[in-house]
Simulated assay, not measured.
Amino acid sequence: MAGKPKLHYANGRGRMESIRWLLAAAGVEFEEVFLETKEDFEKLRSDGDLLFQQVPMVEIDGMKIVQTRAILSYIAAKHNLYGKDLNEKTLIDMYVEGTTELMGMIISLMFHTPEGKAKQSAMIIDRATTRYFPAYEKVLKDHGHVFLVGNQFTWADVQLLEAILMTEELKSDVLSKFPLLQAFKTRISNIPTIKKFLQPGSQRKPPPDDEFVAKLRKIFNI
């Protein structure tokens, strides 16, 4: 029997967090190997474990997979969270790309100055409420289903919830004009595996603080 997936990254959110979310949503226990120093990172590189010389990297089913999207796609497909046919898979890809864009902007905030962070945060909220959340609200309204795709729980639902919660950390009432997304947030948050991941003490990581950013800069020579 294969062991637990092993996640190699720093002890914080970044690009690994969506992978943690998806594994948790699938009910898969995983181990984490945290990069604490630049030497830890360089050892992965010198050992030939990082095809493109970057993390995240996940050891799973005898493979060492890099590139966040490839890792997520593999997990989603393995655990039946990737739709039942090509059309559904394409919709999931499309919705995931939208949330990836939004979360990418939020992740980048940690490297801004306080002044730059305030300006960027305002832009993110504007994009979220005029571009991204209206699109997902429309999807839910048009098909009238519980989930985004195929009326079944998929990767797209997991990542939309993650994006909503990240955006709410910037503005708590960001969903005030999106009643269907409010209901969606409640539904998905109460799926047992998700509910467990949202509890204190899980492997979900907190928003990045100055100490984490400083550690990232040292590890990755940013």
Results as ranks from 00 to 15, higher is better:
Lys119Glu: 10
Lys119Met: 02
Lys119Asp: 11
Gln120Thr: 09
Gln120Phe: 03
Ser121Phe: 02
Ser121Thr: 12
Ala122Cys: 02
Ala122Thr: 13
Ala122Asn: 12
Ala122Gly: 04
Met123Asn: 13
Met123Trp: 08
Ile125Leu: 10
Ile125Ser: 07
Asp126Arg: 14
Asp126Phe: 02
Arg127Thr: 09
Arg127Ile: 03
Arg127Tyr: 06
Ala128Pro: 12
Ala128Phe: 00
Ala128Trp: 00
Thr129Ile: 01
Thr130Glu: 01
Thr130Ile: 00
Thr130Gly: 08
Arg131Asp: 10
Arg131Pro: 08
Arg131Ala: 07
Tyr132Thr: 15
Phe133Ala: 06
Phe133Gly: 01
Pro134Ala: 03
Ala135Phe: 02
Tyr136Thr: 11
Tyr136Met: 12
Tyr136Lys: 13
Tyr136Trp: 05
Glu137Phe: 01
Glu137Ile: 12
Val139Asn: 08
Leu140Asp: 09
Leu140Cys: 05
Lys141Val: 08
Lys141Ala: 12
Lys141His: 09
Lys141Gln: 12
Lys141Phe: 05
Lys141Asn: 10
Lys141Pro: 02
Asp142Ser: 14
Gly144Cys: 02
Gly144Pro: 11
His145Gly: 14
His145Arg: 15
Val146Pro: 03
Val146Cys: 11
Val146Glu: 14
Val146Ile: 14
Val146Gln: 15
Val146Lys: 15
Phe147Val: 06
Phe147Arg: 14
Phe147Cys: 13
Phe147Lys: 13
Leu148Thr: 08
Val149Thr: 12
Val149Lys: 10
Val149Ser: 06
Val149Gln: 06
Gly150Glu: 05
Asn151Phe: 05
Gln152Ile: 02
Gln152Thr: 14
Thr154Met: 05
Thr154Asn: 09
Thr154Arg: 05
Thr154Lys: 13
Ala156Asp: 00
Asp157Cys: 06
Asp157His: 11
Asp157Val: 07
Asp157Ala: 05
Val158Phe: 04
Gln159Ser: 14
Gln159Leu: 15
Leu160Lys: 08
Leu160Ala: 07
Leu160Ser: 13
Leu161Arg: 14
Leu161Pro: 05
Leu161Trp: 00
Glu162Cys: 14
Glu162Thr: 08
Glu162Phe: 08
Ala163Leu: 06
Ala163Met: 10
Ile164Leu: 01
Ile164His: 06
Ile164Gln: 11
Leu165Lys: 15
Met166Ala: 11
Thr167Ala: 00
Glu168Pro: 04
Glu169Asp: 15
Leu170Arg: 12
Lys171Phe: 00
Ser172Arg: 15
Ser172Leu: 06
Asp173Lys: 10
Val174Trp: 01
Val174His: 04
Val174Ile: 00
Val174Arg: 09
Val174Pro: 05
Val174Cys: 08
Leu175Ser: 04
Leu175Gly: 04
Ser176Tyr: 03
Ser176Thr: 15
Ser176Cys: 11
Ser176His: 10
Ser176Asn: 09
Ser176Arg: 15
Lys177Leu: 02
Phe178Ala: 09
Phe178Val: 09
Phe178Ile: 06
Pro179Trp: 00
Leu180Asp: 04
Leu180Gln: 12
Leu180Tyr: 00
Leu181Glu: 09
Leu181Lys: 13
Gln182Trp: 03
Gln182Cys: 07
Gln182Ile: 07
Gln182Phe: 01
Ala183Glu: 11
Ala183Pro: 05
Ala183Asn: 14
Phe184Pro: 13
Phe184Leu: 07
Lys185Ile: 02
Lys185Asp: 03
Arg187Pro: 02
Ile188Thr: 07
Ile188His: 01
